[in-house]
Simulated assay, not measured.
Amino acid sequence: MLSAALLCLVVAVSDGDTLKLRCGEPGAYRRLTVRLHAVDAPELGQPFGRSAKRALADIAYRKTARLDCGQTDRYGRRVCEVWVAPASCTDARCPKTLDVGLAMLTVGMAWWSRTHASEQSQAERGRYSFAEREAKARRVGLWAERRPVPPWQWRPAHPYPR
Rank of each mutant, 00 (worst) to 15 (best):
T90V: 10
D40P: 04
A131E: 03
E25V: 15
A103L: 08
P148K: 09
L21E: 02
T90K: 14
G24H: 05
R114G: 10
C23Q: 07
C89L: 09
D73A: 13
L6C: 02
E119K: 14
A92P: 02
L21M: 10
T33W: 03
G126H: 09
Q122C: 00
L36C: 05
A157T: 00
E124W: 09
I59W: 14
K63H: 11
A135H: 07
R77H: 10
V140L: 03
V10A: 08
E132A: 02
A110L: 08
C8W: 00
R77S: 09
G141I: 03
C89A: 11
V13Q: 02
R54H: 13
V140F: 02
V13I: 12
E25N: 09
Q122H: 04
G45D: 10
E134V: 12
L98I: 07
H37K: 15
R35Q: 12
E145M: 15
A87D: 13
D73S: 12
A137S: 14
P161G: 06
G24I: 06
A157F: 14
A135D: 06
G16T: 01
M1Q: 11
Q120L: 15
Q71G: 14
K63N: 05
R30W: 07
M104F: 02
C8P: 02
P148Y: 10
A85K: 09
Q122I: 01
G16P: 09
Y128Q: 09
R74S: 11
D73T: 14
W143G: 05
A157I: 00
P150V: 07
V82Y: 07
S3K: 12
G141F: 05
V34A: 10
P159S: 08
A38G: 04
T64P: 00
Y61M: 14
K20M: 08
P151T: 01
D68Y: 01
L9C: 03
L32K: 13
S51C: 00
G16K: 07
C23F: 03
V10K: 04
T72R: 12
W111S: 04
K96I: 00
A117Q: 06
G126N: 12
A85I: 07
Y29H: 14
T64Q: 07
Q153S: 13
E25D: 10
D58W: 12
W143N: 06
M1I: 09
V140Q: 03
G108E: 03
D99Y: 06
A135W: 05
A137E: 12
A137N: 11
G101Q: 04
S129N: 13
P26F: 08
S88F: 00
Q153Y: 13
L98Q: 15
L142Y: 03
D15N: 13
A131F: 01
E81T: 15
Q71D: 15
R31E: 15
A117F: 03
L21N: 01
A135Q: 06
R147W: 12
F130V: 11
W143I: 09
R62I: 00
G70Y: 03
A57W: 03
G27R: 04
L32G: 02
L9V: 01
S121P: 06
A123K: 11
L2E: 12
M1C: 08
W154H: 10
P42D: 02
D91E: 14
E134H: 07
P156V: 11
A57N: 05
S113P: 00
G49I: 08
D91W: 11
L142D: 04
S14L: 13
R155P: 08
Q71M: 11
L19W: 05
R50P: 01
A92N: 06
K96P: 03
R78A: 14
P95V: 14
